[in-house]
């Protein structure tokens, strides 16, 4: 597609980005891998020594790891379930013609723009607080005992908060996909006598499959790293009830100063994320060809 001259120029233009990203990828990650094989505690400087796979062993066998892994999966799975199902329903609804579509659309999208610390704190205090929160007020009005969300059901509460932030994302993408659905195809199906339900199952849903996959994969990447919401609401507690993998790594390395253990945990998180990334990349790569 081009001449030798433009190729040389092109190479020069790409290289800063490539070099920076390469350094960004290789230097810290290399250090993490290196640290993960060291006995290295920030409280005992100068005492670093090689330990082989000990850090991995201790990181993986601690009971907190099992809990954190489970919590991570529950968090990712729970939020995905709510946002994908909710997103499909909402997208179908918003795709119908009605008055004030633009305004409703804007209202639905809004939570996505709220920074994680704000959404978590607002939900924690203004809604889920057992004394002054809105849910507590509502319960009292109905004559019920207020429920202490964040200590009774910490993980579920965090799932709810995170799902609120991500529902707009799923809705927006699925709505965009719905709008690209061929109207003539739908009309043809209607002429063929397909009911609304059949049209949804045989036309709409297959049309959305790609977008749903994209939503699932991209959200998974972000949800595997949920951190701020946990930090400002439960600090991972009570106990390890709402500790996920990133939070566990943070706790171990920056709160307990165990650099070696934290690094091993970081590598475990990287491996987990890479499994998801592998599928996402294949998906996007396919799209690049078309």
């Amino acid at each position: 597609m081009a001449t030798e001259h433009s190729r040389t120029a092109a190479r020069l233009m790409v290289s800063p980005a490539v070099i920076l990203l390469f350094l960004w990828m290789i230097v810290p990650l290399g250090m993490t891998i290196y640290f993960s094989f060291l006995r290295y505690n920030l409280l005992m400087p100068g005492m670093e020594s090689w330990t082989g796979f000990d850090n991995y062993y201790y990181f993986l066998v601690q009971p907190a790891f099992g809990a954190a892994l489970l919590n991570t999966l529950l968090l990712v799975g729970g939020v995905l379930l709510i946002t994908v199902v909710g997103g499909i329903l909402l997208a179908l609804l918003l795709d119908q013609p009605f008055k004030g579509q633009g305004i409703v659309r804007v209202m639905v999208i809004a939570p996505f723009f709220v920074m994680p610390t704000v959404s978590a704190l607002v939900w924690k205090n203004m809604f889920m607080n057992p004394v002054n929160g809105m849910f507590a007020h509502l319960a009292k009005t109905l004559g019920l005992q207020p429920f202490d969300f964040l200590s009774q059901a910490p993980l579920a509460s965090i799932i709810l908060i995170v799902a609120w932030s991500w529902l707009p994302f799923a809705t927006l993408i699925l709505l965009t996909a719905l709008q690209s659905l061929d109207r003539e195809q739908m009309e043809a199906a209607e002429m063929d006598g397909a009911s609304w339900m059949n049209r949804f199952i045989y036309l709409t849903l297959p049309h959305l499959t790609r977008s749903i996959t994209v939503v699932v994969l991209i959200q998974t990447i972000f949800l595997l790293s949920v951190f701020a919401e946990i930090l400002v609401t439960t600090n991972g507690g009570p106990g390890t009830a709402s500790t996920n993998l990133p939070y566990l790594v943070y706790q171990q390395s920056l709160l307990n100063y165990d650099v070696g253990g934290g690094s091993a945990g970081g590598i475990v998180a990287v491996i987990l994320a890479n499994i998801v990334a592998f599928f996402l990349m294949r998906m996007i790569g396919k799209n690049l060809e078309s």
Binding site: A17, V18, L21, W24, M25, V27, P28, L29, M31, T32, F35, I221, L224, S225, F227, L245, P246, V249, Y250, S253, L254, V259, G262, S263, G265, G266, I267, A269, V270, L272, A273, N274, V276, A277, L280, M281, I284, G285, L288
Partner: peptide
């Protein structure tokens, strides 16, 4: 694709060295 893959790296994976 490679550039994108750098985005897939979870932040906690490099938290410790970045902090240090």
């Amino acid at each position: 694709m490679w550039m994108l893959s750098t985005k897939m790296m979870p932040a906690v994976g490099v938290l410790v060295p970045m902090y240090l």
